[in-house]
Nucleic acid binder design. Sequence first.
DNA 1: TCTGAAATACCCCTTCCGGGGGTATTTTTC
DNA 2: GAAAAATACCCCCGGAAGGGGTATTTCAGA
Lengths: 208, 208
Amino acid sequence: MQKTIRIVIIEDDQILQHAYKQLIEDECGFQVVSCYSSFDAAEKKLVNDDPGIILLDIELPGTNGVQAIPLIKKLVPKAMVIMLTVYEIEEQIFAALANGASGYLTKDVSSAKIIEAIYDARAGGGPMSKKIASIVIKSFQKNTDSPLSKRETEIIKMISEGKKRNEIADELFIELETVKTHIKNIYSKLNVNSRSDALKVVKKNRLI
Amino acid sequence: MQKTIRIVIIEDDQILQHAYKQLIEDECGFQVVSCYSSFDAAEKKLVNDDPGIILLDIELPGTNGVQAIPLIKKLVPKAMVIMLTVYEIEEQIFAALANGASGYLTKDVSSAKIIEAIYDARAGGGPMSKKIASIVIKSFQKNTDSPLSKRETEIIKMISEGKKRNEIADELFIELETVKTHIKNIYSKLNVNSRSDALKVVKKNRLI
DNA sequence: TCTGAAATACCCCTTCCGGGGGTATTTTTC
DNA sequence: GAAAAATACCCCCGGAAGGGGTATTTCAGA
């Protein structure tokens, strides 16, 4: 028999908290072991709850959801954290994922999608609502109209990897002086005069 | 009335090509305007086809799918490219997305999912199959057991941004000498002795 | 409560890197 | 055949980078 999935909900809106619990308990194989209104309230009891999945709101009193993720991971490392939030702020999404969230849903998703996300997460998937998927994909896309030539792009990328001019020269089988010329041209095109400023521009405009 | 979605399929497997065409044409509002077995065959005719969506295989004779994306984007900039491929190779996924693909499906998805992905793409979403979503999310996750302290992580991150030691000192309101000490400790913990090597280790192990 | 890690700061030293001023040739590409 | 890209060389200077030490304070965990 399939092992029951133990679920914990951390959500400060009592109505939503109750709605999620109700929704999930109507599904076979799912068990909402605890609900909390804040991470701080959950902290002491989480280990005992031994959850496989945690539904986590971002806007919480006290420790917010993003901050809570690493703490949760420390307490119950094998638990998968699914963010469930109204906001679609890029920094928040990436911060949550970087901190170890396994999925990210906006609260406008249907009940069925929430259930699906729980199954997904358990199966090692990465459940995301459509808007989030779109934001995530956009974050990968490079700018197509770069002022930099192919070689220049190659070189600024190597600079972003912390490589020195002579290392770049060696790797590209060109002279140090040529690399210097390229870097000068890059700086001139980007209107900067240092590595850090160049990287700032390049990252902001997704040129690499 | 809704504008018809013009679709182009670039897929070298004739059977699959035909299957996709059939599948899509059975759906209302979708129109497969052309099918090609390679990008090279499609190149000249693409502008005339004026597609809104392109289903693109990766393994193609001649120009491969990943290389084809930027060329397609140049010919028909407003077309959304959805990758449709058997492989789930990380580098290929990220390269495709970086090159401008709007979605990425593995060929094991159901017909319904393909149709859904087309609608999604058109609506500005980022259609992905579950496995891809999982890989993408994992790519964001940082390593949780870093040998580096909080401050050290902060500093190596600034180094990754091309910042000089005195810039780091200024930004963190600490002395240059302190920054030097931190960097020494970072190098020692990572067993390296240069910025580029440190960044190599740090990126490989997702420490930032 | 105490121990160790983290964060802070300072000294010494040498090497060679980074950025800016030029100019010029060859190869691509449209 | 003109324009852009890629290549290569000269000059200069300041200070950044990396390695050798040592030492203090703060703070979390056992």
